[in-house]
Amino acid sequence: MLEIKNISKRFGGVIALNGCTFTVPRNKITALIGPNGAGKTTLFDVVSGLIRPDDGQILLDGTQFVSQRPDAIARAGISRTWQQVRLFKYLTMLDHLVLAESNEDAKMFANLASQPRLKKDTYQNIIDRFGIDRPLDTVVTELSYGQRKLLQLAMALHRSHRLLLLDEPVAGVNQIIQEKIEKLLTDLKDKNETVVIIEHDIEFVRRLAHHIVVLDQGRVLAAGDPNVVLQDRRVIEAYLGA
């Protein structure tokens, strides 16, 4: 569904991505793994349009979109989360869910004319389902790190999307929240969603992913079935060597 073809990017003297090529299969959970500095987050940045690659192509269902702006790419159906949670520090949880709901809110004149009724029940259900035990009108800076991660995930899922890019969804959270998130991701798997996850926890990946892509020094080292790939000697060496 998502084809990464020969993507390269360098920052000054540092080569972040070096002819990176792989395909993300539809309706499957793909894990993107690799040692630190392998280029995983940079790749996400390129796919979501925040960084322009020096070379290469990206095709979503056959449509080229490397040169598009990040908001256009997002509207094309790509939802993304960040390893370090990025939320809007003066806004409430309710505000965030409304922002994720649709892009009708970006129309100035339409919103001056009329405002739709706020679907507070829907949003309450969402935060209940994600287990965030705070009122909707809480400003997000008052949430714990784990709650913010859950909110970020909730937003990414609530948006209409075709592809999810999740950057280390369980990094830095406690055991309880990690289990919560894993359950939510397993739900995605049951619903046949197309997801790419960057993760370091190998067992987590083994349980969850249908497909693994291993990145090292900006290029794909191996890709395929988790059990096969994780036995691959080159992969083991890359991790040990890092």
Partner: peptide, 15 residues
């Protein structure tokens, strides 16, 4: 306000 607080995050939401 979202654009003010984090324009990159706002664009990635499709704004």
């Amino acid at each position: 306000e979202a654009v003010r607080d984090d324009d990159l995050a706002a664009s990635v939401l499709g704004k």
